[in-house]
Computed example of a mutant assay.
Amino acid sequence: MHSSVREIPLSSEPDSSYFLRVDESGRGLAYGFQLLLSDGRHAWSGEASEAWVRQEAAELEMSTEKYVQDLREALTGEAGVHSYRFALAPAAPDGALTLTYDKVQKDISFRLGSTRLGPVTEPERIVGALLTRSLERATSLERHNRELREHNLRLRREHVRFGAELERYASGKEALEAELYARFLHVLNEKKAKMRGLRQTLEQLREAGSGEKRERAAEEAEGEAMAPPPPPPLPAVASSGGARSPGPCDDSLMDIADVAPSRKRRFRHRPGPLDAAVERAHASKSDSPAAASQQQPAASEEVEDLFEDL
């Protein structure tokens, strides 16, 4: 069971001080709670059930979660953005009181709830329990504050350590970036130098290739100039029945002198007796085949003489 103690001001008695103790049920404030109110001399106690909590939320047309949140802020004094007011009113002649708590929002207040509190027969015991609970709460809060201070000191030391490490990492990062940039420039310059060398080599190869092409073209032009002119094309042979154009063979034949007429004129006279005797003398002296071969032109001459006679 969670319990809390707080001092509440009463609107009807601004100079008085009342202490309110709230004991929640095991499952939370939404499932019911108990109230104990004391002014140091008297004490009153009351109880609210789960059904009462849900009924109050329904009457205010609020969700149960929202109503329980506002109720917790009002009764336990947890930090909130709204303010609350408390009032006590006599409920019965037996000394019972009614504790009402209102929510103030934008200068408008509406009743959040009310609980009937009956008088306690032994207020001294209740006051002692309130004091004990207050001391326990104070001790718990002090211990919690000490833990928070230690945690803050630890966080501060870690913050300082992290700041120093961050500065060291930042300086190392800057040094690493400078080194990487220097390496990048070195590699880039090497690549540029290599590209320039390759470009110069390519230009030299292109110039050498163009020079070889020019020399080859000049040699080809010189060879064409020194080469003899091609022979004229042979004339086409005329078809049968047509005139044949003269060719180089005809020109060469035309250059040869025709000796046939003179030979014919030579053998046009008839041989005399003297010539016949000379021929017989030559034939008797020579029995070689050359003599026989010399007789063949004579026979051919006689044939030509016969054709001449014709």
Score class of each variant (00 low, 15 high):
1 M>T: 12
11 S>H: 04
11 S>A: 15
16 S>C: 06
16 S>H: 08
18 Y>P: 02
26 G>M: 10
28 G>F: 03
29 L>M: 09
34 Q>D: 15
36 L>C: 14
36 L>Y: 05
47 E>L: 10
49 S>N: 01
52 W>N: 04
53 V>K: 00
54 R>Y: 04
57 A>Y: 02
58 A>M: 03
60 L>S: 00
65 E>L: 12
65 E>W: 05
67 Y>S: 00
84 Y>F: 15
93 P>M: 02
94 D>V: 00
99 L>V: 00
100 T>H: 02
103 K>G: 04
105 Q>S: 11
108 I>T: 13
108 I>P: 00
112 L>P: 00
114 S>L: 04
116 R>V: 13
121 T>G: 10
127 V>W: 04
128 G>D: 15
137 R>N: 07
142 E>W: 07
143 R>D: 09
146 R>I: 08
147 E>G: 06
148 L>K: 08
149 R>M: 05
150 E>P: 00
156 R>F: 07
158 E>W: 05
163 G>F: 07
165 E>N: 11
167 E>M: 07
168 R>M: 10
168 R>E: 13
171 S>Q: 13
172 G>N: 15
174 E>F: 05
181 Y>I: 04
181 Y>G: 11
186 H>C: 10
195 M>V: 07
202 L>W: 10
203 E>Q: 14
204 Q>D: 14
205 L>P: 02
210 S>F: 08
211 G>R: 15
213 K>Q: 13
221 A>L: 10
222 E>I: 01
228 P>C: 03
230 P>H: 05
232 P>K: 08
237 V>Q: 09
239 S>V: 09
241 G>K: 05
241 G>Y: 04
241 G>M: 03
244 R>T: 08
247 G>V: 06
255 D>P: 00
258 D>H: 06
267 F>A: 01
268 R>M: 09
269 H>T: 12
276 A>F: 13
277 A>F: 12
279 E>F: 14
281 A>P: 01
282 H>L: 15
283 A>P: 01
288 S>Q: 06
293 S>W: 09
295 Q>W: 10
298 A>S: 04
298 A>Y: 05
302 E>Q: 08
305 D>T: 11
305 D>K: 13
307 F>P: 03
